[in-house]
Design a protein around this nucleic acid. Structure first.
Length: 259
DNA sequence: TAATGATTTCCTGTTT
DNA sequence: AAAACAGGAAATCATT
């Protein structure tokens, strides 16, 4: 509740974080992969969401699995149509080595041909779309992200923000994805702000972390490696975007691609 | 609407 | 002793 709190309560703090999870679109389901809202708009006018819609569509057609699609979408989370058009082949590869070339080529091809606006994009089925997808039931599909405002993403974004990094939490071993929460109650309060949970506490947030650890968003912290034993956490297999080696962790170069 | 993923809330017990 | 850590159980919320 100190001055620090006021500083962080500033709405700019979170509004500036829209580049991360907040703009993530819901495109994990088979239905949304087949939805082609982007066809309603010319690429120049695509917002981040339409770009994600496009990315999902391309990857889906190219047989990328669900998890892969979700992760790649996140890597393009800061891109709108303008930026996409400014990006060169190597930019795509830098963002995602696995699918960069595919997306780049598809996008080039799209821009090469006159873009015809599809009016009934929603109901349009992709002829090329095969059927090897997992038969979906209802609700959220495995690996599908909802709004992106997940605990591991929140913590990741805090770690990537110098307004919180050394002060509220910090890396203990960035290469390993190990970090330390310094101001536990403060971090929990901000988490509560984001989730609109005024009663959030570190005790409850840490319970959530333990659940998230069970499903792979966080991992087991190697024991007896020097660092203290309390308030130490580690990102797990299902978390991404925190790794320095992962271009997703540093999207600065995108800022040079102006409008 | 019902199913589902991701917490949130509460609690008891253990460890640091 | 205080703050964390561990989980079980049940409730809640958002999303499809």
């Amino acid at each position: 509740m100190s001055n620090v709190s006021n500083e962080f309560m500033d709405e700019h703090f979170y509004s500036n974080c829209t580049h991360s999870s907040d703009t993530m679109t819901n495109s994990g389901s088979d239905d949304s992969y087949q939805a082609v809202e982007w066809k309603n708009v010319i690429p120049e006018k695509w917002d981040c969401e339409l770009v994600q819609n496009y990315i999902a569509h391309i990857l889906y057609r190219n047989e990328f699995d669900n998890d892969r699609i979700v992760i790649t979408q996140d890597k393009f989370r800061e891109c709108n149509g303008q930026k996409l058009m400014r990006m060169q082949h190597h930019d795509f590869i830098q963002l995602d080595p696995d699918s960069g070339t595919v997306i780049y080529r598809e996008f080039q091809e799209l821009n090469r041909t006159p873009h015809t606006i599809t009016k009934t994009a929603r109901s349009k089925r992709e002829p090329a779309a095969k059927k090897p997808r997992t038969p979906s039931t209802r609700g959220r599909k495995p690996g599908q992200l909802s709004k992106g405002n997940h605990l591991w993403e929140f913590l990741r974004d805090l770690l990537n923000d110098d307004r919180s990094n050394p002060h509220l939490l910090k890396w203990v071993n960035r290469e390993e994805g190990i970090f330390r929460i310094v101001k536990s109650e403060q971090v929990a309060k901000f988490w509560g702000d984001k989730k609109k949970r005024p009663k959030m506490s570190y005790e409850k947030m840490s319970r959530a972390i333990r659940f998230c650890r069970d499903v792979g968003y966080f991992g087991e912290v190697p024991k007896n490696v020097g660092h203290p034993k309390k308030l130490i956490f580690k990102f797990g297999n299902k978390a991404h975007g925190w790794d320095k080696k992962d271009p997703n962790a540093n999207l600065d170069f995108l800022k040079n691609i102006s409008y």
